[in-house]
Simulated assay, not measured.
Amino acid sequence: MFKLATSNMRDVELIPEKTSQGDLFSLSNNVKTDRTAEDLLFQVMLSLGATLDCLIERKKIGGKEIFKVDEGYILACFDCDVTDEVIESMAKEQPRFIVIRDACFKNDSVADNFEQIFKTYAPNTVCKVI
């Protein structure tokens, strides 16, 4: 059953004069703590024009859960420690959209390589980081 809820994203609007550098580290996870991967997926589906009756498949790539929506219209991953190898495998499926959480990348190098990997293997894929 679906119900209307507030955004899955935390409110990160801050007042610079009232924000310390230490406060910024608490913002590294931009998703509300009570939200599931499915919550994020449904939000992404609606924002990218997929209807909620689309076929959703779950698969594992490199031990990470991947959601495949509408036979590859959207590929999404919200697991942690995603590697270049996982991203490359996803890119080779050439989805219309790829969606991944900002906090999911194993390290900064993987985050930096994300779009370049898609430009190499799936240049027509629209890359989204939430």
Rank of each mutant, 00 (worst) to 15 (best):
I15R: 12
I15Y: 10
I15M: 11
P16D: 11
E17F: 09
E17K: 15
K18D: 10
K18T: 07
T19H: 09
S20M: 06
S20F: 04
S20A: 06
Q21R: 12
Q21G: 05
G22H: 08
D23L: 02
D23A: 04
D23K: 04
L24C: 07
F25Q: 07
S26V: 04
S26D: 10
S26A: 11
L27W: 01
L27E: 03
L27R: 07
S28L: 15
N29E: 14
N29R: 14
N29L: 12
N29T: 10
N29D: 14
N30C: 08
N30M: 12
N30W: 06
N30E: 12
V31F: 15
V31N: 07
K32M: 15
K32L: 15
T33C: 11
T33Q: 15
T33D: 15
T33I: 09
T33Y: 14
T33P: 13
D34A: 08
D34T: 07
D34P: 02
R35G: 02
R35W: 02
R35F: 03
R35N: 05
R35E: 01
T36E: 03
T36V: 04
A37E: 09
A37P: 04
E38Q: 09
E38T: 10
E38Y: 11
D39T: 05
L40K: 08
L40E: 06
L40T: 02
L40P: 01
L40W: 03
L40F: 12
L41P: 00
L41C: 00
F42H: 09
F42G: 00
F42S: 01
Q43R: 12
Q43W: 01
Q43N: 11
V44F: 05
V44A: 13
V44I: 07
L46R: 10
L46A: 09
L46S: 08
L46I: 08
L46V: 07
L46G: 06
S47P: 00
S47V: 01
S47Q: 12
S47F: 02
S47W: 00
L48Q: 14
L48S: 01
G49K: 01
G49H: 01
A50W: 01
A50S: 14
T51M: 08
T51I: 05
L52Y: 09
L52G: 04
L52W: 04
C54P: 01
C54D: 12
L55I: 08
I56L: 03
I56W: 04
I56T: 02
E57Q: 13
E57I: 06
E57V: 08
E57S: 07
R58A: 06
R58Q: 14
K59A: 05
K59F: 06
K60S: 12
K60C: 03
K60E: 12
I61V: 15
I61N: 01
I61F: 04
I61A: 02
I61R: 01
I61W: 01
I61H: 00
G62V: 03
G62P: 03
G62R: 06
G63V: 00
K64D: 03
K64F: 04
K64H: 06
E65K: 11
E65W: 02
E65G: 00
E65I: 09
